[in-house]
């Protein structure tokens, strides 16, 4: 794995005696899309605000490309593109004027670059209209455009698909994947939509009560599990345990940890033992199930 572009070390935020973020450490890598999951009030948006300098750290450090957000803010943030919650733009100006406005706050954003980004997010037709006439989805696109203007190496998106239609979400996902792979951008997506995170991200970090409670890769084959229905029961059980398979049984069905490419071998061996096989199927445990398991039913504490 390459060097992390963003490092959060022992990040803590206390407001009025209440610990919102508790000793959170996390590393984010170039070219990787990391999902940030958590129940409501877990501290997702607070973490994003700390990473973008909107809020001050109580203790700990956040560095982006080696520059500390607390001590070297302008350098640290120059590599970051942000959408915090809803992208609130200046409604009384056109989308284009909004982008001109933000481009003036960065170095070297040309008019051509603005046009390019507008085209990428699919707003060319309406860009000269006032933002107050935009739908939520169009504002979301404009929000993405302003975050991408300066070609950031690190993109923070808070609830990015809010208000997009299914086609828009799909397009958005493809686009994020593209910039992650082609431009080696690190993307940090906070969302409560588990299915979204599952489809979009390579990796997920889960936060609850301000603490990071889990961090894992998505679609990893290490955890692949198979459901096996076969008889006679004792024979299969004996065979599995004597051959060091990890498994559990449930109402006559075996649940075993097994990679897909090992399945034919197992079947061959069981058949050779005169075992009758009724069914072998992969158990697809959705992120939602994992998430609910980890956060204890997602209760808000």
């Amino acid at each position: 794995m390459s060097k992390p572009i963003v490092e959060l070390k022992n990040v803590t935020k206390i407001i009025k005696g209440k610990t919102l973020i508790d000793n959170l450490s996390l590393e984010l890598f170039p070219g990787q899309i990391t999902g940030f999951l958590g129940p409501n009030g877990a501290g997702k948006t607070t973490t994003v605000r700390l990473m973008t300098g909107l809020m001050r750290l109580t203790s700990g450090t956040i560095t982006i490309e080696g520059a500390s957000i607390a001590d070297d803010y302008e350098k640290a943030i120059s590599n970051v593109g942000v959408i915090v919650e809803n992208p609130e733009m200046y409604k009384y100006m056109s989308g284009y004027k909004n982008l001109i406005h933000f481009s003036r706050m960065h170095k070297d954003v040309s008019k051509e670059r603005i046009d390019e980004v507008v085209k990428q997010v699919g707003l060319t037709k309406r860009i000269n209209e006032k933002v107050s006439t935009y739908s939520l989805g169009m504002r979301q696109r404009l929000g993405l455009a302003q975050a991408l203007l300066h070609d950031p190496k690190f993109l923070i998106l808070d609830e990015p698909t809010n208000g997009l239609d299914p086609a828009g979400i799909r397009e958005f996902r493809t686009y994020l994947r593209k910039i992650a792979v082609e431009n080696n951008v690190s993307i940090f997506v906070s969302s409560h939509l588990l299915s979204e995170i599952e489809l979009m991200c390579d990796r997920v970090a889960v936060i609850q009560n301000g603490k990071l409670i889990d961090e894992r890769m998505i679609q990893s084959d290490e955890k692949a599990r198979m459901k096996l229905k076969a008889e006679p029961f004792e024979l299969v059980e004996n065979y599995l345990s004597s051959n060091d398979y990890v498994f559990t049984t449930q109402e006559g069905i075996f649940l075993l940890e097994l990679k897909e490419d090992k399945v034919p071998d197992l079947i061959n061996e069981l058949v050779a033992q005169q075992v009758q096989i009724f069914a072998v199927s992969a158990v697809h445990e959705t992120l939602e199930e994992q998430f609910l398991q980890m956060t204890g039913g997602g209760q808000i504490v």
């Binding site: 973008t52 300098g53 909107l54 302008e74 943030i77 970051v80 942000v82 915090v84 609130e88 706050m105």
Partner: peptide
């Protein structure tokens, strides 16, 4: 009040 402050302050400008 418009919420634009967060767009304005997350820029490389002090």
């Amino acid at each position: 009040t418009d919420g634009t402050i967060k767009m304005l302050l997350t820029r490389p400008v002090s």
